[in-house]
């Protein structure tokens, strides 16, 4: 029923999109030939001062860049990984001198904390968790939630870090009977955590008590949907999903993001906005990031597309630069910048 009731975002032609919505302001050159896997902007504390830094991850090295001025960056720390390759960066909100990384080949095998102890300023990494890790997310109040295993053997754990990132406390959440695919914190409802499952369900936990509050099956059209953002307003839950497996149709074009509204009391849901590719733009969703009301996606064509979820349409298209397809896109957690990465490890910073 969701597709019939979904409002389709406008499909403007590619030519009508204003590329001026994105202004290049800086570039981080990767001197190594290692393949780029993730990028993130985090607050980092150095000598008692919090700075907006950029973390860039290649398969075998993670680098921390600090700003010299508004356009120049300096690499200040590197962490090396010789045994297991880096898969993704996992920022932990409210911690200022720690970032986590997930390591593995196809699936996550380890989660490590990366630190720079202030006494000797040398890089340090600490193994936090190992095993068959399915999903991981940093959440507010210096917490890291992760799920390991599948179905009945699933364990969902929250670690809480001390302010300096050193010690930690551990707590378990009640597992659902379906394998968790992604986690998302629910903005607007403190202590609510949302998860999507491989069986097209959305689950909600109470982070404080560990209770599993609700499991809600959503339309089968949302298969393998990843949740990029969730917020609660006026008693309803708004969820932004992406659709790596969505099929192109004549009526809806090629869907990339969908805004779904759920009543958590009744488990009823309805799709309210479908973000499709502009007319004439080919490709499907590869990966993306949503912050506030803006959603960015890398398409299989190598182009980055941006949607404004309030306006309901695509606002910018960024084609590959220097014939290099885009492979990473992230909204900065410290300002309104967009971080765009290429496979060769070069990171471009745009103002949106």
């Amino acid at each position: 029923h969701s597709t019939e009731q979904t409002e389709i975002a406008d499909l403007p032609a590619c030519e009508s999109l204003n590329p001026g919505n994105l202004q290049l302001i800086s570039e981080l050159k990767n001197p190594s030939s290692s393949c780029s896997v993730d990028v993130s902007a985090v607050w980092w504390e150095r000598a008692g001062t919090k700075e907006p830094c950029i973390i860039a991850a290649c398969e075998d090295v993670v680098s921390l860049w600090k700003p010299l001025n508004s356009v120049q960056w300096e690499k200040v720390h590197t962490w090396h990984f010789t045994e297991v390759p880096v898969l993704q960066i996992v920022p932990v909100p409210d911690v200022y001198n720690l970032v986590c990384v997930a390591l593995g080949s196809l699936e996550i095998r380890e989660i490590r904390a990366l630190l720079c102890p202030s006494d000797n300023e040398s890089e340090k990494q600490v193994l936090l968790k190992s095993g068959d890790i399915k999903a991981v997310l940093g959440v507010t109040k210096r917490r890291l939630v992760s799920s390991t295993g599948t179905f009945c053997n699933q364990q969902i754990q929250i670690m809480t870090f001390a302010e300096d990132g050193s010690s930690k406390d551990e707590q378990l959440l009640m597992p659902p009977d379906e394998t968790i695919l992604t986690f998302a914190e629910v903005q607007g409802t403190q202590e609510a955590l949302l998860g999507t499952t491989t069986m097209n369900s959305i689950v909600i936990w109470n982070l404080k008590t560990g209770q599993l509050l609700k499991k809600m099956h959503i339309d089968d059209a949302y298969q393998a949907a990843m949740c990029h953002r969730a917020y609660s307003e006026m008693g309803l839950l708004f969820v932004v999903l992406s659709h790596p497996c969505a099929r192109e149709s004549q009526a809806f074009g090629s869907p990339v993001f969908q805004l779904l509204v759920i009543n958590p009391k009744t488990a009823q849901s309805v799709g309210v906005l479908l973000c499709s590719l502009p007319q004439g733009q080919a490709g499907r969703f590869l990966e993306g990031d949503v912050k506030d009301h803006v959603a960015a996606a890398i398409l299989t064509s190598g182009t980055i597309a941006i949607w404004d979820l309030l306006l309901g349409h695509c606002t910018a298209l960024l084609p590959p630069v220097s014939d290099q397809s885009w492979s990473l896109v992230k909204w900065s957690g410290t300002d309104s910048h967009l971080l765009a990465g290429q496979k060769d490890g070069n990171i471009f910073i745009y103002r949106y």
Binding site: Q5, T6, E7, M174, T189, E191, A192, I204, N206, T209, Q211, L212, L213, K214, S232, M234, G235, L236, V261, I262, N263, P264, K265, T266, Q268, S269, V270, G271, V272
Partner: peptide
């Protein structure tokens, strides 16, 4: 679309579900 399709809405859904769910 109408939120009437979603059934009765509660502003305190999180607290209510927390009191109903098993500990």
């Amino acid at each position: 679309c109408s939120t009437a399709d979603l059934g009765p809405i509660s502003l305190n859904w999180f607290e209510e579900l927390s009191s109903e769910a098993p500990p």
